[in-house]
Amino acid sequence: MALTDVRVARPEEPKHAPPNRAKFWLYRFDTKTVPYLLIAPFFLLFAVFGLFPIIFNGIVALRNWRLDDPTLTGWAGMANFSALVQDTDFWDALLNTFGIFILSTVPQLLLALMIANLLNRKLRGSTFWRIGILLPYVTPVAASTLVFAIFFSRDYGMANWLLSLVGFGQEQPLDWRASTWSSWLAIATMVNWKWIGYNALLYLSAMQAIPKDVYEAAAVDGAGPWKQLWAITVPMIQPVVLFTVILSTIGGLQLFSEPMLFDENPALANGGYDHEWRTIAQLIYKVGWRDLDLGYAAAMSWALFLIILIVAGVNYLATRRLGGGK
């Protein structure tokens, strides 16, 4: 419709008449320069607020940069990095980050797969179910973490009440924050809760793109629904599985909000009395804005980036392997 409107609007205008000089320059400007003007905002803003901080971060990591003592400046060389290697806080945080990462990623993606498989049926109200499982995704992570912080509290917490129903911890309620594994489990539960539905939709979308005759061909061999899922569906959606593995690696290793707000006093950024669940991202925050040592925090950011790169690479290769290595 728009097409004909525009054409009919000015039929009398000569198409190939020589344009006057001003018109010519306007046309040139419009076709040669305007496209760059349209994409310029992205590149400018990214250069200032994305690229520059990353490069500058490398410089900060090599300097003394303290918020509480601006006079203490100058090059630190590799001092921040060599401090990092000997910093047990860093290695503890790394262990916590990995522990929570594994506890949250593996069940998250497996359950998402199951749910996507459920949704990949002919269902009544399919939109309703899909919207419903997105509720955790839209819920602010700060808000949901505060609910879970109460859910996992030692006295009066619902998690402990549920455990007591099955006869666990009746004489001594479980203090979720007191030990490493239980705090990891609690935080992993929050992460799983938030992201399972989102990932399920990603999988579902890929599942629906599988041609139906693929199933029809395989059914001749008598593949049941379960075998169908693992033998046909999963290999067929492997690219999306890879994508979600990379996505949850990047997100999971930068985990910040959940461990922060699980603390009984988030302002301290402790991650537990004995830092049972303090993650790297949280440690960077603590070093930078509680200890006010930005140089050291910048060095930690670099270390985290390197770790993310390595783990994402390993996970990428491993997932490809599992899927048959096409």
Binding site: L118, L119, N120, R121, L123, I133, M207, V214, A223, P225
Partner: peptide, 25 residues
């Protein structure tokens, strides 16, 4: 068996599972 999952109607079990998932969400 030759039906693709998209053409297989959900059973009462699928609806029950989805309801539970929704409640947890």
């Amino acid at each position: 068996l030759s039906r693709a999952p998209q053409d297989t109607p959900g059973t009462w079990k699928s609806y029950l599972a989805l309801t539970l998932i929704l409640l947890v969400s």
